[in-house]
Design a protein around this nucleic acid. Structure first.
Lengths: 170, 170
DNA sequence: TATTGTTATACTCTATAACTATA
DNA sequence: TATAGTTATAGAGTATAACAATA
């Protein structure tokens, strides 16, 4: 299947043969993404809310910084933070150094919720690879890391120039 | 990084070390998904519209079948098809056998557009793995296929029982 | 009665443009 | 003047509930 022209990228996997690299990576991405989205939903969160809370676990960024992290317009972040704050998951704190800025801070409730969600994420992703041997799992993580790190470098991830975090090593 | 407790799952990759399996797969998924979404947007499509058109490339399903394929409520599919039809990418055809059903059919314009998008998908995913050797690429596709196929089986993908497609092998 | 599809409604997510307040 | 953030507005995507038509 998907050997000579058919693209499986967009349709459900059905057979059991090997996919070519493009299909395999696309399908893997869908599987992981779908798994994470289901878990987020089970915690009454969207993926972007989980990302927001995940970032806030060890940072207290401004709205503008969040917009850069999340690659969203700042007006989108305003709404995102509004809804999270409405649920008591985050709160806004006026920034001391710049009267224009607002720091977004996670609340204990938000921290607890995202902690549970991330724990479930871990379990779900691990479950995806349950059929692989330890050696294969290691190989997969090495190869995936290579791809991810190369891509991050290519697309010029910043973060380095912004050390206002709270205990963010790396 | 991400060696003893820190979870990178939700934040941008920064270092260059090996991620553990969970982080590596999650990050890989984000990289692929982001790449695909950017390409879709460059073609004035959302990911779900690309999936819709991709399915329609070799099928002419009813709205209900589409809802199952896409794992959406049928009312969501109605809206999806409305918008695609409004752009001339698909059209509705009354089903001959069942007066209640509607077949969704891709138009030549829709086919051309999704063809271009999928071609760009291929190139983008291939580019992601450009730093791997041919051997490593092969290994990665084998491992990813294993994970994907096992997951598909686990979650009980159907498709088999629905051979009303148009030349869908597999 | 059950199924197919649409409509009405509501909420999240996203962007653009215009605005206020601060720098 | 430039930057930070919000508001107003609009549109895509999603779901639930109610409905009409058909089986």
């Amino acid at each position: 299947m998907a050997g000579h022209g058919e693209r499986v990228v967009l349709t459900p996997v059905t057979g059991e043969g090997n996919l070519d690299l493009v299909d395999a990576l696309a399908q893997l991405s869908f599987a992981v993404h779908g798994s994470l989205a289901r878990i987020a939903a089970a915690h009454d969160l969207s993926m972007v809310q989980v990302r927001l809370l995940g970032i806030l676990r060890d940072r207290r960024p401004t709205v503008s910084e969040l917009a850069r992290f999340l690659e969203l317009d700042k007006s989108s972040v305003t709404g995102l933070v509004d809804r999270a704050a409405g649920r008591g998951l985050v709160r806004r704190v006026p920034a001391a150094r710049d009267g224009r800025s607002v720091l977004v801070v996670i609340t204990p409730a938000g921290r607890a919720l995202v902690g549970r969600a991330v724990q479930a994420f871990d379990a779900a992703v691990a479950a995806l690879a349950i059929d692989l041997s330890p050696t294969e799992r290691h190989r997969l993580s090495v190869l995936a890391s290579r791809v991810v790190v190369a891509d991050a470098r290519r697309r010029g991830i910043v973060l380095e120039g912004e050390p206002e975090g709270v205990g963010v090593e790396a």
